[in-house]
Design a protein around this nucleic acid. Structure first.
Lengths: 167, 167
DNA sequence: ATAAACTTTCAATATATTTTGAAAGTTTAA
DNA sequence: TTAAACTTTCAAAATATATTGAAAGTTTAT
């Protein structure tokens, strides 16, 4: 396989996998491109490389910065802004886990807590509702605790966990 | 909060959260409805309750069965088919982890393995590409190993892990 | 202060995904 | 075997999401 082919494959695989961690195609592709680039890239270079519009590039770079996985860098003597991706996959996982917890899990946990607290009127449907939404609440809490551990500073939690439990 | 209000909130929260585990709104809502229903429901009842078409209900029930989290049940003396959800959240997590690994993670791991094996021509961009795609491959492998552990029969892995590491 | 270089915004447009509903298909009872 | 009861399929329509590009906005150099 040629470099060019491998690169295109990486970018498109990452792009279509984007939904796995809740981002759109262009956003994932920009991230993929920066992730494998040895040097920071300008907006011009990114839109050129991916064949997407200036507006699209601008908006998705912003979104990636909101996720905390792409940063602006200043290249001395250049007026343009340059961008680089977080390169450390451990740190990348941390940021993604942190953002997904904040954006999705925590709001859900709050709703589950509220609705599982309705008064038990003794009917079968109410009993089942309370039981099941409580179980879901516990599960979401557990998932959130795991994510928080991934996010926390403790080094290599994932690896340590695996060594202990999988070997 | 009234039962009806809590129920609608659960169904719509689950519906909009569907994307978190890669399913569409109707599919998530049907699942939510069955998850809190004390009894199996017919297609008629589901489409009535959620206000969706027969075709939509049929297709999404099929998809939920493909995911292994909804099952047909035979109600004696009834000609219609009835459906019920997996009620145990542990088993639910297992099925979802298993399916997501199979559908998304494993194909990605394969691509990453292939493309990170291109020949090193010594250039900076090739070196960076190989380094970064290898790191991503390792991460994906680790994630898949975790999912497999969740999927495996070992009871309460999540809980045990949490007790050991989070307390 | 001016203007060139660059970035952002957002209404319009394009694309992708979901939903509908009626026709076709299947099963069951008599 | 017939027909009623029920389910599935899928082309068309509706909806939701992503993308464009040009105008407006901002920054920098002189």
């Amino acid at each position: 396989m040629e470099f060019k082919e491998a690169k295109d494959k990486f970018i498109s695989t990452w792009g279509s996998l984007g939904t796995l961690w809740g981002i759109n195609k262009a956003m994932a592709q920009i991230h993929a491109l920066l992730f494998i680039s040895p040097d920071p890239m300008s907006m011009e270079e990114i839109m050129e490389e991916l064949g997407i519009s200036r507006g699209n590039t601008s908006m998705n770079l912003r979104a990636l910065m909101d996720w905390g996985i792409v940063h602006k860098v200043n290249v001395p003597g250049e007026r343009k802004e340059y961008f680089e991706s977080e390169k450390d996959v451990t740190e990348l996982s941390r940021q993604i886990a942190k953002e997904r917890s904040r954006r999705e899990l925590q709001p859900t946990i709050k709703v589950l807590k509220d609705i599982s607290s309705i008064e038990d009127d003794g009917s079968a449907k109410t009993k089942e509702f309370i039981k099941q939404t409580k179980a879901m609440h516990d599960l979401a809490d557990t998932a959130d605790a795991m994510m928080n551990r991934i996010v926390s500073q403790e080094q290599n939690w994932i690896t340590k966990t695996l060594v202990k439990f999988l070997k």
